[in-house]
Design a protein around this nucleic acid. Structure first.
Lengths: 194, 194
DNA sequence: ACCTGAACACCGTTCAAGT
DNA sequence: ACCTGAACACCGTTCAAGT
């Protein structure tokens, strides 16, 4: 790649990151090119689709999230690791308005530039989920895609200004529904002590 | 209103209903006017905003949903009424792709043409929720807006083609989290038979 | 009183023409 | 090899001009 091309590409990514953080994933591509002082067609050749641009922006953080799952797997209890990771997923997606819709579309479209990253993300969550299920900490009637769906729907809720303040509360209710240890300790003492 | 105006208005509503059912709430208004064989400006004067058009399309069904809540209140147990109503809410919103996002925005914007209808809808759900809570059938740490949020997030999930098949399962999990009677019968024999 | 075509400022996408 | 301006077909919104 020619030197000016690399420079354009990097500058475009920086500007796109700022604009999308500010306006969401449906921000005007024309506006991004304009702010980057670059021809619109230049943006399109570097990133042939909006999703290709998104992928370059998100790739690093997606990998971090996968690595974070490994860390949590080593350092926390199965249930805590899963719950912590879910919270980090939510706070991350919250910084790019509308990104969950793109992720939901990409996860089942192998043609999408975002596909691989989403599969990686789902795999990381699935790892934590199955570990928690093996430990008997989480109900076994859901799989990694169900977890992905629940996380996505809660993330979407966080994108709605009217509902954002209540998301933490609703997350705790959904988490409680997943954990088998929430056996209503007050209700019945099935096996309380050792 | 002049006779031709009424005719235009009704024809526009019929066409808009068809197009939006087909393409979702973000369908092109220009396309709707075109299919209705009417000038674009005519559509704009009858319905000054997209939400005003949506409101006219949804109003009747919103009222039906509120009436349906009353019926269920009279005919079913508190828990069954709430769960049935939630399912009807989901199957209804499913027929207008993207409508839940509009509802979430409208519920806290009194300026929105959709505001009143959404408040009515939330009130209907709240009625069933508080009845179930009074009967001790549903957890008391959520209110009508939480219910609206959960219903909305599940409806959004149903709009995502990749996740639609799993929504029923996830709904049942969320419902179980709301009901206080879901004391995990398989886990511990607290009170199995009579 | 109501309708309409045209204008305006946007958008994503493509491509011939430049260097 | 890379960039760009201009063209194209869209979009929502507005308004002067028609009947």
């Amino acid at each position: 790649m020619r030197a000016d091309a690399t420079k354009n590409r990097e500058h475009l990514l920086a500007v796109a990151g700022a604009v999308i953080t500010e306006q969401g994933v449906d921000a005007s591509l024309r506006d991004i090119a304009r702010r980057a002082d670059v021809g619109l067609a230049t943006l399109f050749r570097h990133f042939p689709t909006r999703e290709a641009l998104l992928e370059c922006l998100l790739h690093a953080r997606f990998d971090e999230m996968a690595a974070r799952a490994d860390e949590l797997e080593a350092s926390s209890s199965p249930a805590d690791a899963l719950v912590s990771w879910l919270h980090e997923f939510l706070s991350y997606t919250h910084s790019y308005h509308g990104v969950v819709a793109s992720m939901m579309a990409a996860i089942q479209d192998p043609q999408s530039a975002l596909h691989a990253s989403c599969v990686t993300m789902r795999a990381a969550g699935t790892r934590l989920l199955t570990r928690a299920q093996s430990a008997g900490a989480v109900r076994t009637d859901i799989d990694g895609t169900d977890l992905f769906a629940l996380a996505g729907s809660l993330a979407w809720l966080g994108d709605q200004p009217s509902m954002a303040p209540r998301v933490d509360h609703l997350v705790s209710i959904v988490v409680e529904a997943l954990l088998t240890t929430s056996a209503k300790p007050a209700a019945g003492p099935s096996n309380p002590g050792s």
